[in-house]
């Protein structure tokens, strides 16, 4: 027996310049939320949001994910504390941007050496974020009342981290469509240097934990559309040997 949801897609028929439909509206107006009310979302609502994750596409339908919901205020506080500790340690070694002349001479070459090895983890954005966290100027988990740990089963098909991303984005969009707020947090990675957190969450082969999603009621309300960098799109829509045609996003050509 096929289960039928009341409204089947497509929700609307495309016409040039038509208003945003509700799905597009949620996509455009979702922002990463970093301020939350203390009380968490109801458990049923969290389960509803996770249903959006269960029905995400995945390579070979492998569904290489495992969801862990962390709601305990004590555990959340301990995670924040330990993450800050690890970050402070790394920044003590590598942060050349906030030191005097002499320490800079030592730390800068060391930092650049590690940046070459860990080019994604030590990209300027997370580097500066960790620098600010080490100085106590911002937080890792933004005091979220709930974290969804997006555990990856590394035995998935093709590229399991991609499936995690797709699954998580379903979760995030579903959350915002229901009036909640969310923020992806990649910095949870730093907890994986501490064996007791790996043990508590059961992160050993074949599992990996590289990202989590903060969930809660927005306070202040911070969803809304933003301007973003216009990218160049390449169109291969002519002959076999013709050069591509280019258009710029966000402007009528």
């Amino acid at each position: 027996m096929n289960m039928k949801l009341e409204e089947l897609s497509p929700l609307y028929e495309y016409q040039e310049g038509m208003p945003w439909n509700p799905v597009e509206k949620v996509i455009m107006e979702r922002r990463s939320i970093r301020g939350f009310k203390k009380e968490p979302l109801p458990d049923t609502m969290i389960e509803r949001i996770l249903e959006a994750g269960r029905f995400a596409p995945s390579a070979g339908n492998a569904q290489p994910w495992r969801f862990i919901v962390v709601k305990s205020p004590e555990i959340l506080a301990a995670m924040e504390k330990d993450a800050v500790r690890v970050i402070k340690f790394f920044m003590f070694l590598l942060d050349y941007t906030r030191t005097g002349f002499l320490l800079r001479l030592i730390k800068k070459p060391l930092a650049k050496f590690y940046i070459r090895i860990l080019g994604n983890e030590l990209h300027p954005v997370p580097f500066e974020l960790m620098s600010q966290i080490a100085l106590g100027k911002t937080k890792v988990f933004h005091d979220a009342p709930t974290l969804i740990l997006m555990v990856e089963d590394s035995r998935g098909v093709s590229c399991p981290p991609m499936d995690i991303g797709i699954c998580g984005e379903n979760i995030v969009l579903s959350a915002h469509s229901l009036g909640a707020g969310s923020c992806w947090i990649g910095l949870i990675k730093v907890l994986m240097y501490l064996p007791w957190w790996r043990k508590r969450f059961g992160i050993r082969k074949p599992y990996r934990l590289e990202v989590c999603i903060a969930l809660g009621w927005q306070k202040p309300k911070a969803d809304g559309a933003v301007p973003r960098e216009a990218q160049v799109i390449e169109w291969f829509d002519r002959g076999l040997n013709d050069a591509p045609r280019y258009t710029k996003q966000g402007v009528k050509s």
Partner: peptide, 13 residues
């Protein structure tokens, strides 16, 4: 490399 520095709001094509 392909992102320009022009900031644009979502456009309803």
């Amino acid at each position: 490399l392909t992102q320009t520095s022009d900031m644009k709001y979502p456009l309803r094509y």
